[in-house]
């Protein structure tokens, strides 16, 4: 409240109303999420009351039910696909970004544009061929297919983002290290990477968010074996009717990892999503 007051004081008339409006809008953004988390701790009977109950006896019953309903497999699939694809992205993106940042080859601009152009492909436009390829190589309903696709999907952002971080490392530092006899490997692992560690972490977190949230490839390419968390949620919505409390518990659990990742990466999000164009 104190900050709110000072903010009001520093402004002329009308500023107060504007601040109140801002908080109201903030509340609108928060309300659905808040309601979801609240409902997740209700019993089904408490969730269905009209008017809605704000006070009730909280229970963890719904979360337990989820795992009885087989949520475990979905969560493990998501965890595996997200972790492995993010590691693969970093493994491929860091060298590429390094080469593009430090030693621009003649066609650097073309290469960068090539990476970015793939971000203009609507997924709907590539799903049919990908489905056929997956069928041919027997990779339908296989979590490795998702891993490969998530890696390809996140690579462009990761390359651009890492490049923008790597460009900030002063070339003098690298030259100095080289003069001191550092090999290329030492130069990368002991000089470069420590300096861009925060950028590397932010890149990884953004990849985690996109991989964990991905829905379209998962819904079209997997069935029971490799299905991920978003599918569990959608399947639940249709097959079980609408059990608000249980669905809320599932949704809350499905959101938790990305909310943590997003919170940690908040400062770097815009930079990542604008491909490093905005710092």
């Amino acid at each position: 409240m104190a900050a709110l007051d000072t903010a009001v004081q520093t402004r002329r008339r009308g500023g107060g109303a504007l601040t109140v409006l801002t908080w109201f809008i903030g509340l609108l953004f928060f309300f659905p999420v808040f309601w979801m988390v609240l409902t997740a701790f209700k019993r089904e009977t408490d969730a269905a009351t009209d008017p809605p109950k704000l006070f009730f006896e909280p229970t963890l019953e719904q979360f337990g039910n989820l795992f009885d309903a087989g949520a475990g497999t979905y969560f493990l699939n998501s965890l595996f696909a997200t972790t492995v694809s993010t590691l693969l992205v970093l493994l491929l993106a860091v060298p590429a970004a390094y080469a593009l940042a430090i030693r621009p080859v003649k066609r650097t601009k073309d290469v960068l544009f090539f990476f970015i152009s793939t971000k203009m492909l609507p997924v709907v436009a590539v799903i049919v061929p990908i489905y056929v390829i997956a069928g041919q190589i027997g990779a339908l309903d296989n979590v490795w297919m998702l891993i490969v696709l998530y890696t390809a999907m996140n690579l462009p952002i990761a390359v651009w983002m890492m490049r923008s971080f790597l460009q900030e490392v002063p070339t003098e530092v690298l030259e100095a290290a080289q003069m001191d006899g550092a090999t290329l490997r030492q130069n990368i692992t002991q000089v470069m990477l420590p300096m861009v560690a925060p950028g590397l972490a932010a890149t990884a977190l953004i990849c985690v968010i996109f991989a964990w949230n991905e829905f379209f490839f998962a819904v079209n390419l997997t069935a029971s074996q490799a299905a991920t968390v978003p599918l569990f949620l959608v399947g639940f919505m249709t097959s079980e009717g609408l059990y608000w409390a249980q669905l809320s518990a599932a949704a809350t659990l499905a959101s938790l990892p990305v909310v943590l990742a997003g919170w940690a990466a908040q400062k770097q999000l815009v930079r990542g999503l604008s491909m490093g164009a905005i710092k």
């Binding site: 999420v33 599918l231 999000l269």
Partner: peptide, 25 residues
């Protein structure tokens, strides 16, 4: 930063969750 986080929540949660929230709403 708190306000930004709240707005960010709406962006960051999975599309499937968002769909559920809006259907529920």
């Amino acid at each position: 930063s708190l306000l930004e986080t709240v707005v960010l929540l709406a962006w960051i949660i999975p599309a499937s969750v968002i769909a559920f929230l809006w259907i529920a709403l």
